[in-house]
């Protein structure tokens, strides 16, 4: 778990999602499904067992007509670093079979489908519901399996899966860089499928540790917040919103603190 603990070159890939721009169009969800061979069933309206590595939530401010407001919030895996960046994300620390791991060189929380034996403890641990279980055998209608991406293996029934920040794209980019004699990637060489597809350009992806990457600055915005920061999960997905109520919806607050978090 703790190999290559050298923090010098350690990257910390993360996302900044601009909720002011997100239109809730759903392209990120489908881009992800297509990239990662996410299975689908004949009825996917039961959202509690529908696999969507990135899911767009619809938030409302709870006010009545005409003061109602809506905000869409895409939610991938947060790739939590845990307290003190130790990689003890809620899920990694509980997996009994080391089937999910924290990569200290990238900050990405991996999932090894062939190792997972489906105990679902990680799902119980994740407050973001970012993990999904394969309750069914994945079935592609005849012919449609031709569209499957060979870079991501389809999962079998009975294992947990989740967003990998398109880690296979990182590997491919690194492979390419190595053959070209480089050890480092340009910012645009490694982008997740959802980032690439987002018509609104609402998603920015990059190395949070790298001052040359856009995310490095964006995350410092006064409008930036993360989901459930109080739980000290230390997520690597940041959100931007200019609206107070949206930022407040990111965490739980006691009535007495209702004065909106620090800006």
């Amino acid at each position: 778990m703790k190999k290559e603990h050298t923090h010098e070159n350690a990257k910390k890939f993360g996302m900044v999602i601009d909720l002011d721009k997100c239109t809730g169009c759903g392209a990120c969800m489908v881009a992800c499904m297509a990239e990662n061979n996410v299975p689908f069933k004949k009825d996917e309206s039961e959202k509690l067992d529908s696999i969507t590595w990135i899911r767009v939530y619809k938030l409302t401010n709870g006010k009545s007509f005409p003061d109602t407001e809506i905000c869409y919030l895409p939610k991938p895996c947060m790739h939590c670093s845990g307290i003190g960046e130790h990689g003890h994300s809620p899920c990694v620390s509980v997996c009994p079979a080391t089937a999910t791991d924290y990569d200290h060189t990238t900050g990405i929380v991996s999932q090894i489908y062939t190792r997972c034996f489906g105990c679902r403890y990680c799902m119980a641990a994740c407050p973001y519901h970012a993990r999904y279980f394969n309750w069914w055998d994945p079935v592609w209608p005849e012919g449609m399996e031709k569209s499957l991406n060979p870079d991501v293996s389809p999962r079998m029934r009975g294992v947990v899966e989740k967003c990998s920040f398109c880690f296979h794209r990182y590997q491919a980019a690194m492979d390419k860089a190595y053959t070209e004699g480089r050890r480092e990637l340009e910012e645009d060489e490694y982008q997740t499928a959802c980032t690439q597809a987002c018509p609104a350009g609402a998603i920015t992806f990059g190395d949070l540790n790298n001052p040359d990457h856009k995310v490095h600055e964006l995350k410092k915005s006064p409008n930036a917040f993360r989901l459930l920061e109080r739980l000290k999960t230390n997520p690597k997905v940041y959100y931007l919103s200019s609206r107070d109520w949206v930022r407040k919806a990111g965490d739980n607050y006691l009535e007495a603190e209702n004065k909106v978090k620090k800006k």
Partner: peptide, 14 residues
């Protein structure tokens, strides 16, 4: 979900 692999809890113990 994968009872046939449940012994991984011993083999790959975290």
């Amino acid at each position: 979900g994968q009872p046939l692999r449940s012994w991984f809890i011993f083999w790959h113990a975290n």
